[in-house]
Design a protein around this nucleic acid. Structure first.
Length: 699
RNA sequence: GCCGCCUUAGCUCAUCCGGUAGAGCAACGCACUUGUAAUGCGUAGGUGGUCGGUUCGAGUCCGACAGGCGGCUCCA
């Protein structure tokens, strides 16, 4: 998940005369030097970010980059990372420096230290950082040649490695450095630079770091920061490398922006589906069953069933045939599909059955291995293959809620978003090669409409292709991959949606389009996927008889609409913060009598609602009415129906909505009709006194 | 899988330095019968995640395992 902050763009252009620093030019142009819109760096005519101290040789025009822009924030964060590193080396002189880039919403810095950092260390480091910031050290850029840098950084082994990579020396492993994250050296092949931190008054060098920059003019210009957490991280992202200790922090252009960010995190925590799942009694993960295996409680079961019922109905409307397949299979099936060599270690280990031995232990019957199902496609292929198919039958579309089990590594299991047992809303379309583009288009339109129906209306597409540097990992010829990728790309582009490239992200059997949906607080989640597969039809020798009587090979298009029902459940829970749309809400209506004597009236109303298919309860507990309102408000029930003497006299009920608004004295028949209509509409907003249109009898 | 942290009542948490556990909410009971976010009183509830070790004595110290949290790597 990730968060994107809107950021104003200030494309203010300033002329910098030859021999004058950008700083002076900015000052003369009257641009702010302090505050949230302070100019922190400039962008030169070549589009490169430069320090304010940068002084061009010839007259040039530059763009002022303000603190509250994306680039400006990145500079603040990167400078803050330097301050962190300085503080760490003050407190832990033996600490060796890794890398310290800005990231979305913050920064990190990796260190090789004797022992991992503790929360107390963070408090101490923040204290030291504040001191450094206050002292106003200047960031000074200095160009060095590789040999000098090596000499100077002799005690920083990781930096030396980066210099080596940069100058192309001694690079035995072929892994490329992720240049987007490594700020130490300039990927564009420019010069090697060190940034020195100079004492504000004496100009004495206090600290320094290999870095391509740019930086703020001084540490004093770091407006607001906070250290967030510590974690381990592999050096240069490979688990073969040593683990370093990473400190994450965040930094912003103002205290207000920092506070807003922290508020957003607090809101995300309130919406956390794991918390809401327990509070609203939706699901749990009993230890006795095992990590990553969920049980849905009755209320969660209602939501899951509503989701599935609707999705199943829509599939059938769109020409899919609903099929069913078992949870386990003999090993051979996954050999046939080609999955086993690629995915054996992310599948649960096989169980061996049917083995028989004589009393002396000698093998009488070998038995065989069965695997828990980790993907549905091979079984759908068998359904396709069960009889001869004609071109007239195509496209054939099989769909099911397939239960699959994946042995996710223990450290990655996470709530409902990363589980070991999940339900895929999985379909496979078998089409002619010529028909593939139309089918992909059909599927994409369908998945987007489903996301819309559930209220996730903000999304973009990602196109995952094979890794051209590692083609051995992907099955099929270059031509096949190119053709498949072209089909997906063309369809994706035709939607007009934003399309992001994901090179190397494809499955071994073909490229994929995925839909990334943004939730109510701006985080994005990978949901639907559409994959073009020319490999499995070959492995299974799938065929259809063409018009000319020849046997032809179909292609198959895999598509998961929500990916997994469990994950989508989690995303929806967070998107709606537990206040599900009426059509999904586990309890849609709760009746609250003002006193016990009025409960019968509400029972009668409830009976009518129940007859109309509404999920309704009447709260006859001996809590006071106010307490009941509180209880069902925290349970996020969309309609509370109250009734007292006045309502009964008028044959009415009174509405209270989630937001606390109310409509009193509504005739029972009108109330039942309006509630039923709202639920049937599957609208995703919460009803309020304003949005809920109903005749008020007594008003 | 790797690193760090965590695990005490159904839930959220407390228990100073090792001397056999306490609160709020929830549950249950009784009283109250109430018009839009918590009525009052009472009762019950824990072999302190599991197993092992150190100790006269372990919720507390050590180890292993399980589960969780935050990251890394991974994610068909």
């Amino acid at each position: 998940m990730s968060v994107s902050a809107a950021s104003p763009t200030h494309a203010v252009r300033v002329r910098v005369p030859a021999g004058t620093s950008a700083s002076v030019a900015i000052g003369e142009a009257g641009l702010p030097r302090t505050g949230p819109d302070a100019v922190v760096v400039i962008r030169d005519a070549d589009g490169r970010l430069r320090d304010l101290a940068w002084t061009p040789d010839a007259d040039t025009e530059v763009e002022a980059v303000s603190a509250d822009s994306d680039d400006g924030r990145a500079v603040i964060r990167h400078s803050t990372a330097h301050v962190l590193a300085q503080a760490v080396q003050e407190a832990f002189p033996e600490a060796k420096l890794g890398i310290g880039p800005p990231i979305r919403d913050g920064f990190y810095y990796d260190f090789d230290v004797r022992r991992p950092f503790t929360p107390d260390d963070l408090v101490e480091l923040e204290r030291r950082m504040k001191k450094i910031i206050k002292s106003g050290q200047r960031f000074a850029r200095r160009v060095v040649i590789p040999d000098d840098a090596r000499h100077e950084l002799a005690s920083e082994p990781y930096k030396l490695e980066l210099i080596g990579l940069k100058s192309g020396v001694a690079q035995e492993d072929s892994e490329a450095v992720d240049t987007a994250e490594v700020m130490e050296v300039d990927p564009a092949g420019g010069e090697l630079t060190i940034y020195d931190n100079l004492h504000a008054h004496t100009g004495e060098r206090v600290w320094g770091d290999l870095c391509r920059g740019p930086h703020l003019p001084t540490t004093k210009h770091i407006p607001a920061f906070k250290l967030m957490r510590t974690a381990a991280a592999y050096w240069r992202g490979s688990e073969k490398n040593p683990q370093l200790q990473r400190i994450y922090g965040t930094a912003w252009e103002s205290d207000e922006a920092l506070a807003a960010h922290l508020d957003m995190l607090a809101e995300a925590e309130r919406r956390d589906h794991r918390r809401l799942g327990a509070e609203l009694d939706l699901f749990s993960f009993p230890d006795e069953i095992g990590s990553g295996l969920v049980v849905f409680h009755p209320k969660g079961g209602v939501i899951k069933r509503e989701m599935e019922d609707y999705v199943r109905r829509r599939h059938i409307e769109e020409g899919f045939d609903y099929v069913g397949t078992p949870h386990i299979t003999k090993q051979h099936l996954f050999e046939l599909s080609g999955h086993l060599p690629y995915y054996a270690d992310t599948m649960f280990p096989p169980m061996h059955v049917d083995e028989e031995r004589d009393s002396d232990g000698t093998l009488r019957r070998a038995g065989q291995a069965y695997y828990l199902k980790a993907m549905n496609c091979p079984m759908h292929n068998l359904i396709y293959r069960s009889r001869q198919r004609s071109y007239r039958d195509l496209p054939i579309r099989y769909f099911e809620f397939g239960s699959v089990y994946r042995y996710e590594k223990s450290g990655v299991v996470h709530g409902l978003t990363r589980v070991r047992g999940l339900t895929q809303d999985d379909s496979h379309s078998y089409v002619t090669r010529e028909g593939a583009a139309d089918e992909v288009k059909h599927l994409l339109k369908f998945v987007l409409s489903l996301l819309d129906d559930f209220g996730l209306t903000d999304y973009y597409l990602e196109l995952s292709t094979r890794d051209e540097k590692n083609v051995a990992k992907f099955k099929g010829s270059e031509e096949q991959w190119a053709a498949a990728t072209a089909v997906l790309e063309e369809v994706a582009k035709s939607t007009g949606l934003k399309l992001v490239a994901d090179p190397g992200g494809a499955a071994f059997y073909g490229p994929k389009i995925s839909v990334q949906a943004r939730d109510a607080i701006g985080r994005t989640w990978q949901m639907s996927t559409i994959q073009y597969d020319f490999n499995q039809p070959e492995g299974f020798e799938l065929e259809y008889v063409a018009a000319d009587g020849s046997r032809q090979r179909p292609v198959m298009i895999h598509s998961a609409k929500f990916g997994s029902i469990e994950r989508f459940f989690g995303v929806l829970t967070e998107h709606y913060a537990g206040a599900f749309p009426v059509w999904l809400a586990p309890v849609q209506v709760v009746g609250i009598p003002v006193a016990d004597a009025f409960a019968d009236h509400l029972d009668a109303v409830a009976a009518q609602l129940r007859f109309a298919g509404i999920r309704v309860e009447v709260d006859r507990s001996d809590d006071r009415m106010q307490k009941k309102i509180r209880t069902h408000t925290t349970q996020k029930v969309p309609f509370q129906l109250l009734a007292g003497a006045k309502d009964i006299e008028a044959g009415a009920v009174s509405f209270r909505f989630r937001d606390g608004s109310q409509i009193n004295g509504v005739g029972v028949a009108a109330a039942v009709a309006a509630i039923t209509e709202w639920a049937a509409s599957r609208r995703n907003d919460s009803p309020t006194a304003e949005s809920f249109r109903v005749r008020s009898e007594t008003a």
